[in-house]
Design a protein around this nucleic acid. Structure first.
Lengths: 72, 72
DNA sequence: ACATAATGTAAAAGATTATTAACATGATGC
DNA sequence: GCATCATGTTAATAATCTTTTACATTATGT
């Protein structure tokens, strides 16, 4: 499976935030669960706006969640 | 004209980096000049990957270039 | 055993971002 | 005046991201 070039630790963050489910996170940022699944599994990377919203939910800097790895 | 919800100071950064032109920036990150124009004028926001590349060129944290303003 | 919740997979349609191409303007230098 | 460079505008196409829908798997609790 093709992976996108940006890593993330959303999954870890969800669990560290009271085991927030994909559904809850999705609702929080106003997207569908499919989008969360796709991002977590690196099927594709989110838009910049979505990335900011996710960082907002977990209250961490964007770059603490997403890391760009050009080589992948 | 509709503005996207993410502000940026690419234009300022270009001028502070030896007055780098849109064309040079575009070439640096591997997109067309149209994409730079669209982002600078907030016609739309870049993908997360593109945002990282731009931050890389100017060697500043992503959030120093792009700011999310939900209210716009 | 059964119901429920959380996660996973897949495919088509819709929305947004990026490219390509063509043409326009203003500034600069020859 | 003319050529060149940087920027701007528009429109059509291509690529990528998001939604919608439907169904599968695994774990948990009753």
């Amino acid at each position: 499976m093709e992976l996108c070039s940006i890593q993330n630790n959303m999954r870890k963050l969800r669990f560290n935030h009271d085991e927030m489910t994909q559904q809850e996170l999705a609702k929080n940022i106003g997207v569908t669960r499919q989008t969360i699944i796709a991002i977590e599994s690196r099927k594709y990377s989110p838009t910049l706006e979505l990335a900011f919203k996710i960082a907002g939910v977990f209250q961490v800097p964007l770059e603490e969640i997403f890391q760009y790895k050009p080589e992948n």
